[in-house]
Write a protein that binds this DNA or RNA. Sequence first.
DNA 1: TTAGATGCAAAGACTTTGCAGTTAA
DNA 2: TTAACTGCAAAGTCTTTGCATCTAA
Lengths: 155, 155
Amino acid sequence: MNPEVREKIDELFIKKGLRMTRPREIILEAAFSDKGDHFTAEELYEKAKSIDPKASLATLYRTVSLLVEGGLLHEINLGKGVVSYDPNFIEHPHHNHLICVDCSEVIEFEDQHISVLEDCITKRLGFSPATKSIQIKAKCDKLRKSGSCQNLISK
Amino acid sequence: MNPEVREKIDELFIKKGLRMTRPREIILEAAFSDKGDHFTAEELYEKAKSIDPKASLATLYRTVSLLVEGGLLHEINLGKGVVSYDPNFIEHPHHNHLICVDCSEVIEFEDQHISVLEDCITKRLGFSPATKSIQIKAKCDKLRKSGSCQNLISK
DNA sequence: TTAGATGCAAAGACTTTGCAGTTAA
DNA sequence: TTAACTGCAAAGTCTTTGCATCTAA
């Protein structure tokens, strides 16, 4: 786990007076140790069970809620009513998502220009651009050109 | 109901060989007759029941699915895992959403500049900018300044 | 006439919660 | 020591589905 991530977690636990328990350690490990893929509750549960087969889904949901409330994990909706979690906001607080409407591939990106424009629009509408986030839904060129794309095939 | 909306609905029903039944008419009326507010399945159900108390939730879900597949209704996630439906894409195909993270107020907006920029980013990432949509999550100025805002109070 | 649509009630998927026992600080 | 946490199983919420009946075209 990235030391920056570890530090933010410890901060949150101290700030909120939370206890660091073994079941929570396992969930944190499952959520933050990897390459930063998004995951559903079910996927996180599988990963947690691979670390400790006794991992409990109730504790997992409770821990995920704490992390979301604390801002360390973001709930994202990639369409189709599926709730996923994004562990990358600690390291990349300003990233946005592009989601392929066909194959559900998700790409994270940051862009200075769109941030500025977004701020303008947000202010014009009478809002403060805090905690803003952008989702672009688009069609994957791979799919359009070849009639298929990686993630669609792998389903 | 707006004639343009009516026309698109009829088009869809003809294209897909769907039958226009009374239960479906009621749901269409509930979804598209008003000022274009977003609604949840439950809210739509209440409205449908106000038109005909015998309205069935099963038929409602089935009809909503057809409309979403046909592109007449868009599923939107305004955070908190709540699924809502947006009936305004027929009249405003390119609108985007700004959602207040505090009070969940939703504002629809269109912006030429952000559309262009969005297209650039999308292409750069290897995607086609078809059916793109942007969600900005931000903080409501009203809330920030006065400590409260309309929608927060009304809850 | 008949394929499609309906409505009920049951099932399903996902998430939350009550409670008795356990544990970090 | 004790307030917080855990894990189980039960409950809750939201959505889908099987099936017998009905109906638009």
